[in-house]
Amino acid sequence: MSLEVSENQLDAIIRAAIEKHGDQRDALIPILGEINQALGYIPGEALGKIRRCINTPEEGLFLADSHLYSIASFYHMYSLKPVGRHIVRYCESAPCHVVGGRQVIQRLHDFLGLAPGETSADGRWTLFQTSCLGICSVGPVIVVDDDIYGHVTPQRVSFILAKYR
């Protein structure tokens, strides 16, 4: 989805995040988290804005945009690209795999026509692979936005996704 973020909106999110978490280096990950939470992704221009807000060379804190980029790109929960209206995550770890996860993932890929990390042309879906979600006792598991679905079968995939417009 081409989510247009206005300059002001982004500034406001960053200001609020710094207000909440502080302007030291250890606040960086929480700040990035707030932006990702609010917008679904971290726009490139946010990195420079954060840097300008928290750099205090006189206290020995001096970061380049590349530092911020390296952090934002390291953690899997952050996206650096705009995402669709609904985010579908699936776990491909062994516990889900041995109880039928392979077939579910295949069905997900076929149904959405997406590879992990891709967003559909109509902006409805983004598909992500996620690491184990710790709900393995009901595997295979998929997560759509914040809703968790357990004991998923290939047949259930289309029914689950039909709930999301």
Partner: peptide
Amino acid sequence: LHAGAGAYICGEETALIESIEGKRG
């Protein structure tokens, strides 16, 4: 409280410490 951001490696104690400091884990 410090929430992680999705990185298996941060369970390793020194990576975890780096992450709390606001760096790549």
